[in-house]
Design a binder for these strands. Sequence first.
DNA 1: TTGTAGGCGTTATCAA
DNA 2: TTGATAACGCCTACAA
Lengths: 347, 347
Amino acid sequence: MRRKLTLKLIAQELDVSISTVSKALRDSPEISEETREKIKAYAKKYNYKPNNIALSLKNRKTNTIGVIIPQIVHHFFTTVIRGIEMTAREHNYNVIICLSNNDFDKEVINMELLANGSTDGFILSVSKETMLKEDYHHINEVVEQGMPVVMFDRVVEGIACDRVLIDDKAGAKKGVMHLLKTGCRKIGILTSHDYNSVARLRTEGYIEALNDAGVAINEDLILKLDNIDECGEDCHKRIKEFVENNELDGIFTVNELFAVAAARYIQEEGKTIPEDISIVCFTDGNLSQHFIPSLTTVSQHGEEMGRKAAEILINKLQRDEEDEDYSTTYIDTSLIQRESTHTLKNR
Amino acid sequence: MRRKLTLKLIAQELDVSISTVSKALRDSPEISEETREKIKAYAKKYNYKPNNIALSLKNRKTNTIGVIIPQIVHHFFTTVIRGIEMTAREHNYNVIICLSNNDFDKEVINMELLANGSTDGFILSVSKETMLKEDYHHINEVVEQGMPVVMFDRVVEGIACDRVLIDDKAGAKKGVMHLLKTGCRKIGILTSHDYNSVARLRTEGYIEALNDAGVAINEDLILKLDNIDECGEDCHKRIKEFVENNELDGIFTVNELFAVAAARYIQEEGKTIPEDISIVCFTDGNLSQHFIPSLTTVSQHGEEMGRKAAEILINKLQRDEEDEDYSTTYIDTSLIQRESTHTLKNR
DNA sequence: TTGTAGGCGTTATCAA
DNA sequence: TTGATAACGCCTACAA
């Protein structure tokens, strides 16, 4: 079989019209039992499958959700995707994923590409560069064309779309409170600059937890690194100095990488975790689970987040009269206690 | 702007025919300077973008590459995807990614889905379940329809397609030789069952390295775990026993997870790495880099692999007369020395 | 220089 | 019960 089978080819072969074939295959009662069977048998034998492209064109909808994310290395994004895919499949939607690699231009290209017919709507987490530039024209354009958009995790103000967020502030607070409960008082935080919505909220949670506990905020104990997605040489150096120059008994970090770097320099100083310094970090990924000591983390329930985002989007897609109300949903976090903090009886 | 702009709409608005608009926008010399400018100005003003779906249908090609992989958590797959995307973009192809989650049914569904018009060709790494079942009908179907397929990493015999492989055997050999060179003699291997092509080849490399060095193979030192993608409870237990019951001075593992698990039980026994036992593992990911001690690894050059796979596929797509010759390309590995092995002067 | 017609693969409407 | 026709959005050979 060289070329894909089409209705036309079947029609020619069986000497009927195209529309007869179409109807027969869709079990139309218009067609006589006999011809219907004949056509279906032929289609089955030669494995006919309708061409999705033609269907999309005809129906003006693709039944496909476009997902645009900065990176895929993140365990977190992986779980979100899984959630999206599960819900999508349940509702007979397909998912296509594009990576922006935290690059503004790529984000724009990808969105335009998918917006030109490949997709009915978007689920997206904006790239670092986009946040820095504060240029959202590509997202707004898509919205203006009537395609629903759901932003998750790394969201941005001023766009007419739904939002699904980790409750970053509450999560961070939960983590820092755990440190406090297990006896830490000199707690530092490794975070990132405030343009990153996620980092900012987590820093706020840290501050709030300390405030609630009546522990004074010491600006020296707040280290804002340049990038929340990696930890390069310079980042390592700053963490090293931070650990060496401050008398800490606890550290909260906004990602795993910072936590692991801190652990390294803590141990190099001859201190042990959690005896001398406890660690709690955000994101329950590979590293947290397998590091020695394994890390107490604030887990993000990415799968639930993905499910929720997909649900909202599909919902919007299905009742196409468009309402102008946009929701913001918060997804809870939970604390996973492991070896990097003192054990606590009550939970 | 509610509905997307089409040629038809522009034509109505400017009171010309559709084909005039089409030609003008494609800079046809047939159209007078004047109307051309007028049309282009209008299109630009209202941000006209051709509908990809319509183009695909017309041209019977999508300019899209479908990528199907088992998992995305793997750092390795991430780098492969990056390579694919880079090359694809250079040649004006788009990439759409689908995850099989190591699930046979999902692999089949995804392939059928993409094959029905969404994609011109495939780059795929088969799922664990598919390898187990040895059922490749979905891949063969796609091939028979004339869509080129490039398999990478987890490949399978008996399919008419190109292949891009890590030289797993040579890589493993390289890793084990490093252990030998740094003085290890009682070297164990943590690997997976032979149905996994990758695991099998790495095991062979291990054996060959020992043979070459004149070290006798001891079957007790070869542990075949059930799954190469994760390391669950049972897996951990078996690794623990393996480490405790054997007098080892070196361990080679086919992935990071096994290495990290081994490290844990080695240290629990009061031994240190690399002083008492050295470790080398396959896959240069997050864990290897950040673990303490950081792990000496066999790095897979995933990006190069992705580039190569994409190049081969695009090449096939572009000269559409189909030749029946299929290539197998091996991608080299390299050894990255870190803290988990003794240092070696020469490299 | 501009417009008409046909086709890519489907489906829906209406006519035979 | 079956078939012809138009339409989805685009492109192109050919006619005007």
